[in-house]
Design a protein around this nucleic acid. Structure first.
Length: 594
RNA sequence: GGGGUCGUAGUUGAGAUUGGUUACAACACUGGCCUGUCACGCCAGAGGCCGCGGGUUCGAGCCCCGUCGACCCCGCCA
């Protein structure tokens, strides 16, 4: 029997009425009425109802009796208009149905562990174990198809801008700085390891030095760090690099790409240019380097007032180099004691030791700390925060890092709770002038806040290079969307003398520079052009385009929070032979059952 | 490394704040009936290592300790 498909299940319409068609697909549901059996046949385009009737074909009807969920079927029959009153308006194909005269069961199926349609209510453990079944769900199929389309759009956009794609190695060299590397042992050089790339950073810079002016790659990257709802150990970046460029040119290119993607995929007009904000402004007002500008609740600095008030925890903090900041919640005086306690608990997650508050009622302040403020100070505090009757003001006093982290997250949480976040808004912001270094408490030294190849602001570099590295700004920029970082980049260092000084400030000694980055230093000395670029988090962008909260909804075969794949059971033990070939031994305490 | 939520038929849940004999329901599944369903309906039935290990107890799904796993968060992620 020749079962050449004539139509897809989602494509049948009234135009096909009277045609003989062949459909193939999976049985979504079977409704057996004895003399007539209905089957919803599904493929990746949609559903069509196919009908088995004794009087059309008793043979097909009899065979149809044995159909079960997820059986793979081929049917041949006439497309008919549905009987008056039986049209299903919920289906695009609901006007018609196929009266089957021939059926072949191409493959039966075990009873599935869950119904495909019920996906959303099923435990993720089971869904990931049977990911191949979950992927039959129309939502996931749509997500992955849109992802494919987005990739095409990215490629065509950059191709039109004279970029070209270069593939860079997956097996590469481990470098210090940054995330933990995934390592791959070398068989040929026992005891030595490749690393999987955290990003193609060095290769794309080398391509610039090679004169490949405009590089793009949709690159897979790997980081061996703990996972989150929007973080997977392997992820995809849209990676760009240009020579003889400027931040302005990169902003323009990325803005154009976003217009293109959101326009084509969501039929949404994105207005450009995107607003810009310095890192300092973002931290001051939003407490985060990824400001969510869809709502207000900005941070207000009250350190000066607080330093003079009678509340020791405030004044001491300011004297000790900390700060006191607050956010005003319009109408927030209606929050219950319990709600305030919950917010205090929330603040504690980010290290806040407590959370003072003021409710501005008609009679005046209701607050445990009111008595510590003179009338004068109360007035200036009201003026500073813009406090009005019915408002709530929340305080955080601590080191700047904790204050910003706490209030930055608190403003998001309050906005979420109080429904202050407008839906269907996409607020892009460029964040610029990042500090070149930040001090790492764990490592007791300065580390790059972007990466070690970022061009410093040269004025700052000359001014503070010796004594205050933390004051040097860099020529790095992030693009954020609704308070989420979706990409970051910089103008790079193209002179070996500057690169060398940056390495020194990072406390890398000559031997280390030579062994880790010798090839880069060498390359920089052979006529490296000024260059810069950006990497965009493709998975995160897809989360916005597909309006989903979980990165696992935009990746075909995602890993769990412990970086395992429940379907393949990777990672797994390997054979003793494999280990011996690599000259590796597993510690007895860890155990390797194979 | 730390905090939180969760784990009971194939699936989703119930099983009290009080430990008690046969662990309950819905959907799915199996058999039967049914010619217009699309959450089809009706009748009958099968289905349980209560995540795993240990402890307390005459007796544990329930209490205690440990452990494994999934998810969310902090740290971490240039």
């Amino acid at each position: 029997m020749n079962w050449e498909r004539t139509h897809f299940c989602g494509d049948l319409r009234q135009e096909q009425i009277g045609n003989e068609v062949v459909l193939v697909g999976w049985c979504q549901t079977r409704r057996d009425h004895g003399g007539v059996i209905f089957v919803d046949l599904r493929d990746y385009t949609g559903l069509s109802q196919v009908v088995f009737k004794k009087e059309i074909s008793s043979e097909a009807h009899q065979l149809g009796d044995s159909i079960r969920s997820e059986y793979v079927l081929a049917v041949r029959g006439q497309v008919e208009h549905r009987i008056e009153g039986n049209v299903n308006p919920k289906l695009p194909t609901g006007e018609v149905e196929v009266l089957v005269d021939q059926l072949e069961i191409l493959n039966p199926s075990e009873t599935p562990p869950f119904l495909i349609e019920e996906r959303e209510q099923v435990d993720e453990k089971i869904r990931l174990t049977y990911r191949f079944l979950e992927l039959r769900h129309p939502i996931l199929q749509r997500n992955l198809m849109q992802r494919s389309q987005a990739m095409q759009l990215v490629r065509s956009y950059f191709t039109a801008e004279k970029f070209f794609e270069v593939e860079t190695p997956i097996l590469t060299k481990s470098t210090p700085e940054g995330a933990r590397d995934y390592l791959v042992p070398s068989r040929v050089s026992p005891g030595q390891f490749y690393a999987l790339p955290q990003s193609p950073q060095l290769f794309k810079q080398l391509l610039m030095i090679s004169g490949y002016d405009r590089y793009i790659q949709i690159a897979r990257c790997f980081r061996d760090e703990d996972l989150r709802g929007n973080r997977q150990p392997e992820f995809t970046q849209i990676d760009l690099e240009l020579s003889f460029t400027s931040p302005e040119e990169i902003y323009r290119l990325v803005e154009g790409l976003m217009v293109h993607l959101f326009g084509e995929l969501l039929q949404m007009e994105v207005s450009i240019p995107f607003p810009r904000m310095t890192y300092q402004e973002a931290m001051d007002q939003y407490g985060s380097d990824a400001p969510d500008t869809r709502f207000e609740l900005k941070l207000v600095d009250l350190s000066d007032i607080a330093s003079e008030c009678g509340l020791r925890v405030f004044s001491e903090v300011v004297k000790g180099g900390g700060m006191v900041k607050a956010i005003r919640v319009p109408g927030g005086a209606d929050l219950s004691r319990k709600a305030l306690d919950d917010l205090t608990e929330f603040a504690a997650i980010y290290g806040a030791k407590g959370m003072a508050w003021i409710k501005r009622n008609a009679e005046g302040w209701q607050s445990p700390i009111a008595k510590f403020f003179s009338e004068e100070h109360q007035a200036s505090l009201e003026a500073r925060t813009g406090m009005e009757v019915g408002d709530l003001v929340l305080f955080c006093a601590d080191k700047p890092g904790i204050v910003h982290d706490t209030l930055g997250n608190l403003r998001k949480e309050i906005a979420r709770q109080r429904g202050l976040i407008p839906e269907n808004e996409f607020r892009f912001v460029w964040v610029t002038d990042f500090p070149l270094f930040e001090y790492s408490e764990t490592e007791k030294r300065y580390v790059s806040s972007h990466h070690p190849f970022t061009m410093p602001n040269l004025e700052d570099f000359e001014l503070h290079g010796g004594d205050h590295p933390e004051r040097i700004r860099s020529r790095a920029y992030d693009i954020t969307l609704n308070g989420v970082e979706i990409g970051g980049g910089s103008i790079r260092i193209h002179r070996s003398d500057i690169q060398d000084r940056v390495f020194k400030l990072l406390n890398l000694d000559d031997d280390e520079i030579e062994s880790k980055f010798g090839f880069l230093m060498k390359a920089l000395s052979y006529g490296a052009p000024p260059h810069g670029g950006i990497a965009l988090g493709f998975d995160r962008i897809m989360m916005f385009l597909l309006k989903t909260e979980s990165i696992r909804d935009v990746i075909a075969f995602p890993k769990t929070q412990r970086a395992s794949c429940l379907m393949t059971e990777a990672p797994s033990n390997v054979s003793q032979d494999q280990l011996e070939e690599l000259q590796l031994r597993i510690r007895a305490s860890v155990g390797n059952q194979s």
